[in-house]
Write a protein that binds this DNA or RNA. Sequence first.
DNA 1: AACAATATATGATATTTGTCATGTTTTAAC
DNA 2: GTTAAAACATGACAAATATCATATATTGTT
Lengths: 225, 225
Amino acid sequence: MSKCEQCIVRQFNSLKALSKEELIRISGCKTTRTVKKGEIIFEEGENINGVFCIKDGICKLSKLSANGKDQIVKLVVKGDLLGQRSLVGEESANLSAVALNDMEVCFIPKHEIMNDLQQNSKFSFDVLQQMAKDLKESDDIIVNMAQKSVKQRLAETLIYVYNHFGNNDEGFLDVILSREDYANIVGTATESAIRILSQLKKEGLISTSGKQIKIEDLKGLEHIE
Amino acid sequence: MSKCEQCIVRQFNSLKALSKEELIRISGCKTTRTVKKGEIIFEEGENINGVFCIKDGICKLSKLSANGKDQIVKLVVKGDLLGQRSLVGEESANLSAVALNDMEVCFIPKHEIMNDLQQNSKFSFDVLQQMAKDLKESDDIIVNMAQKSVKQRLAETLIYVYNHFGNNDEGFLDVILSREDYANIVGTATESAIRILSQLKKEGLISTSGKQIKIEDLKGLEHIE
DNA sequence: AACAATATATGATATTTGTCATGTTTTAAC
DNA sequence: GTTAAAACATGACAAATATCATATATTGTT
C-alpha cells in the first residue's frame, strides 16, 4: 500500500501541516478505494466518520432539494479533502459526493484524525483557512444565484471549469459534465441549460462536439449581460 | 469600560473558549462602539483587521452584485462574532455589515486575537466549528436559492426571523425589516416581495401593521408549494 | 401641523424561465 | 454491428418574476 508521507497529493491540502510521525500513523490506518465514474462516495445523511483525501479524479458535491432535483454546490478535485465539515460539526453529511470520472480516494477514519485536529494547531488552523475559503465561495455563489441570469451563471460555470481544470489536447474542456450536471450547478432546468448552450454556440462563444465543449471566446463569455 | 471576562455575551460565541488571562488581555485592548440603525460597521473590500463581537443589536451581512442590488447573505445577532472569516483568510471583507437596529459592538484588533487563534487549540477549534456551521447554512441557502420559488423563500425567511428573534408583546416579529431587506434576502425585486407579502396576507398566513409583520399560520407558511 | 422624503401598494406589461411534447443523436450493452 | 437506453435538441406554451408607471401611506424634519 502506498504511504501518505510520500503521497504528492498531500501537498495540496491541510494534511501538509502534519508532522512526519502523524503522517506515518495515519498512513497505517487509512484505506484506499477506487471509485468509478458515476459511483457514490457518500450520501447526504450518511455518517461518514472520517475524511476522504482525493488522490485522483473529480467529484461533485450535491444536495437533493424538495422538488426532487439535485443541486450541485461544489466540484472537488484531486488534492482536496472531503468531509472535514461533517467531522468538525460532528454531524452526518450535508451533501452527497458522486464521482465525475474514475477516482482514487483515501479514507482516514475519524478517531485517527480528530486528535490531530484538536491538538496540532498548525493543522487545525490550516483546516480553518480552507473552510474560510469554502465559506467565501459559498457566499459568493449565493449572490450569483440570487442576482444573475441563468445565462450569466452558465457562462461563469464554463469559465470556472476552464480555469480550474483546463483544456485537453484538442482544446476542449478537460472535465466533461453532462448537460444535466451543468443545469444542476446553475440551478435551472436541463432543457434550459441545453437551450442556452445552443445559444452560446450560435453566438460563437463556444463550440461543441458531443458532450465536449470548447471555449471560443472567453472575453465574450465574461461579458454576457 | 466594561470587561470581557464579565461580559455575558461571550458565553454565546467562541470567546468562551479563552482562558481568564487571555480574556483580560483582550479586554484591555478592545474598543466599544455604538452603531445606530442603518449605520455601516464595515464595508465589502475594507481591511477590517480584527474581529467584532456583537454586544447588542442585529445587523445584516450583504454583498453588492453587478446589477447594483444588495444581496443579504446572513443576519448576525447579539452574541455573534463578525469578521473571523476575513481574519483567518487574511483578506479584506467579502461582505458589508449594516446595523438593522441600534447596536453595541466591541472590536478586538487582529494582532491581539491572532495569537490565540494559532495557539489556543480549544479556541481555534471552536471558531472552526462555528465556521463549519456557517458553511452548512450557506450551502443550504444555495440549494434554496436554486430550487425554491420566491414565495417559498420569502415564507422561509419569515419563519427564520420568527425562530431566531421571536415576537414582541403584541405578537409581531421582533425584528423589523423593510420590504426591500426581505427582497434582498430572498433575492428578488422589492415589488415582488411586497406583492407576495400582500398575497400571504390575503391567504391569512400573516397580518401586518405598517412595517410590522405577524405570523398567523406557521404551519401554512411551512407548507407553501 | 405641513412638508418632503421614503416606503409600501398595485396594475399593466415584458422578459425570463419552466414544462411538456417530440424527434434526433450518442452511448452502452449484448 | 444491432439495439435499447440515455442524453441531447428544439418547438410550443405556461408560469414565474421583473420592470415600469403611478398612487397611497408612513416617517422624519422643520
